[in-house]
């Protein structure tokens, strides 16, 4: 018989792995890993703000992550060097978040949970919210899939078929912000980027088309998630890092496989 908390963790993990698999492909294609990191770091500020105002963690993180995504989009449209800015904003948000958190007295702020997540502590309401959020993320990604692909390839090519690459990229950034907000409680600010990147990077090696890569990334993410949960359960290790280690195992194996002809 599966323990209730394991069932909840499993369902939340599978939802997140599905959304992360598809979204992670764009992160890999567009080299947005650093952007994902910045959003994830900023979530600590979101958590601190939410605690300060007695709001839910999700709403705080959503607010901060979406604001940061919009700000970075705006800056990148102005043609500013985004790489350095990302570094400033990412660690700035991290530092400010920790500062705000430390200023709050009487509130127990578990840094460990924010950084590494606690997928075993999710309530059924958390699971439902995570699953619903991930379905929404997937729906947006699938509906706009062809537009995203064109936008990734080349902005003028996209425009020639009626797709605004900059608009599609804004959508991807916003979806990424929403995903990170959904994932923070379960997998934590330090681990969420790994959830996005490693399954997608593993899937690359065995894929011939973008669609195959997305499907394989979901499968690899889901497999790592289930395996990681089981291992963490039996060996009493931290869940999110265990899942990531399983994903890294998949990545190493995928690198040893030959590319499909």
């Amino acid at each position: 018989m599966i323990d209730d908390f394991m069932l909840r963790a499993g369902l939340a993990g599978l939802s997140l792995a599905s959304a992360a698999g598809v979204l992670g492909c764009f992160v890999v294609w567009r080299r947005m890993a650093y952007f994902g990191d910045a959003l994830a770091h900023s979530s600590i500020l979101g958590v601190a703000i939410a605690l300060g105002f007695g709001a839910s963690m999700l709403s705080g993180v959503l607010l901060v992550a979406i604001s940061l995504a919009v700000m970075l989009y705006w800056l990148s449209q102005k043609g500013l060097g985004v790489d350095t800015l990302l570094g400033v904003l990412s660690h700035g948000a991290l530092a400010i978040g920790l500062l705000v958190a430390s200023l709050q007295t009487g509130i127990i702020f578990s840094l460990e949970v924010v950084l590494f997540g606690d997928i075993l502590a999710l309530s059924w309401a958390d699971v439902a919210l995570t699953a619903a959020g991930c379905v929404a993320v997937l729906a947006v990604l699938l509906v706009r899939w062809d537009k995203f692909i064109a936008a990734v390839l080349n902005p003028e090519l996209a425009a020639s078929i009626g797709v605004s690459a900059s608009r599609e990229m804004l959508v991807v950034m916003l979806v990424l912000a929403v995903f990170i907000a959904l994932a923070i409680k379960a997998v934590g600010a330090l681990m969420v980027s790994a959830f996005l990147i490693i399954p997608a990077a593993s899937a690359r090696q065995i894929s011939k088309t973008p669609e195959q890569m997305a499907v394989f990334a979901v499968v690899i993410g889901a497999f790592s998630c289930v395996l990681g949960l089981i291992l963490a359960y039996y060996y009493d290790t931290m869940v999110a890092p265990t899942i990531i280690v399983c994903a890294i195992g998949c990545f190493v194996i995928s690198r040893l496989l030959p590319r499909p002809a």
Partner: peptide
């Protein structure tokens, strides 16, 4: 109807794409 041939496309080692799939855009 525009047919656009870009100078380059952002397909690198991270992006799997067959000629068949590419020709299906849009």
């Amino acid at each position: 109807r525009l047919g656009y041939v870009p100078q380059k496309i952002a397909i690198d080692d991270a992006f799997p794409m067959t000629v068949r799939r590419f020709l299906k855009i849009p």
